[in-house]
Nucleic acid binder design. Structure first.
Lengths: 208, 208
DNA sequence: TCGTAGTTGTACTTCCAGTACAAACCATGA
DNA sequence: TCATGGTTTGTACTGGAAGTACAACTACGA
């Protein structure tokens, strides 16, 4: 797989909608050729087959997310505030690229089986959150939890599912407003939880 | 698709590991035939192709989850406690059937494109949580949130991702202990959030 | 004993990913 | 101007796997 001229790369995005709709299986190479305007022979000249098309598209999405989250996480605020920013950043990118997201869910299996993508997935989503959790404990803005790995994963899940489902609902008129609304809801959950103060004492209290 | 004799159904589970490992694409019908001991012709006699195999397996998993969560949700406790029980129930089932879970992630795309599965997914995961959220507001054990739909989805995401990743880690020696540990972590997140009390006032306070 | 439903092997068709290859097409620089 | 080498593209082909057809066989109940 060579490094794909810019023009072709941009044309390739024309296949995202198609793949999101039908899945990669349901999409023939000829369909992709037609949708993108790149002839089949040319696709095969540059890419190692159908999977590589998906790999390219998703790699790009993941890079965008990793970039946006990276920026959000790098500020001078406390970890808690940066976590909110990260949530918003991730959801912002996701809602701006709904069909890439749909393609991602749809062919997640293939994606995680493609080793490079699995790694990109880790760096885009999971690692920044895990990092933040640790820093929040240091700066006192986030609680210490018993199993940080599991919690990071859950937070990741909470954000991602929310974004994914929004993406599946279909593209919205104002993605950034939606992202703001959604990320408020998700941050609220992740930071403050759902329990009422009153119900808290019904629990066997074990300080962590 | 007729209603599959019990013997064949049980044999079909022999394909779960295979599909989890390689994905449905990477698995030939002949492979499934060999792994399950059901000849290809017989598979086609009962099922409408490869997708139907997946549909059957995942439908079963989803039924199990829906069942377990349904029981958890039906108790007399307050909503908060039932939410904890639901988390534990879902994770319990997931960790007991890791390869089905792995197959589910891997071919989620196909799954959500299969309409019946999408519906099963909704009833297994999403609806009970949404329901619980509403009841928690009534009985005072859970907070009122601005966007219950989004929050339900996020909670679902938090639980599911945790379970999925545990399933991917490979089967454990003691699934129920793992489930207990994991669900404690997830419940902690979902109920109490991550913010420290101290950091809470740094926020523009708007009573919901 | 017959009929009906399931079981299975074998051979076939169809479809599509991926390959081969040759002809054009373009840039570069000599 | 021409030669060279990467790129582009059409066309035809190969191979493999999904799904179908069908006939022979089994088992069971009426």
């Amino acid at each position: 797989m060579r490094k794909l001229p810019a023009k072709l790369a941009s044309q390739l995005y024309g296949a995202a909608e198609l793949i999101a709709e039908r899945g990669l299986d349901g999409t023939k190479i000829e369909d992709i050729a037609e949708a993108t305007g790149i002839p089949k022979a040319t696709i095969y000249y540059h890419l190692d087959g159908k999977n590589a098309v998906l790999e390219f598209l998703l790699g790009d999405l993941l890079d965008m997310i990793a970039g946006a989250v990276g920026v959000a996480v790098a500020s001078e605020e406390n970890a808690r505030t940066r976590l909110e920013a990260a949530v918003q950043a991730q959801l912002g990118v996701m809602l701006e690229h709904p069909s890439l997201c749909r393609a991602l869910v749809g062919d997640l299996g293939r994606a995680t089986r493609l080793p490079e993508l699995a790694a990109a997935l880790r760096t885009a989503f999971y690692e920044p959150i895990e990092q933040l959790l640790a820093e929040g404990v240091s700066d006192g803005s986030l609680r210490q939890v018993a199993d940080p790995g599991a919690v990071a994963l859950s937070v990741f899940g909470a954000i991602t599912l929310a974004g994914l489902s929004a993406a599946v609902e279909g593209p919205s008129a104002d993605p950034s407003a939606d992202a703001a609304r959604l990320s408020a809801a998700v941050s609220e959950l992740v930071l403050d939880g759902l329990a009422t103060p009153g119900s808290r004492d019904q629990r066997r209290s074990e300080p962590l």
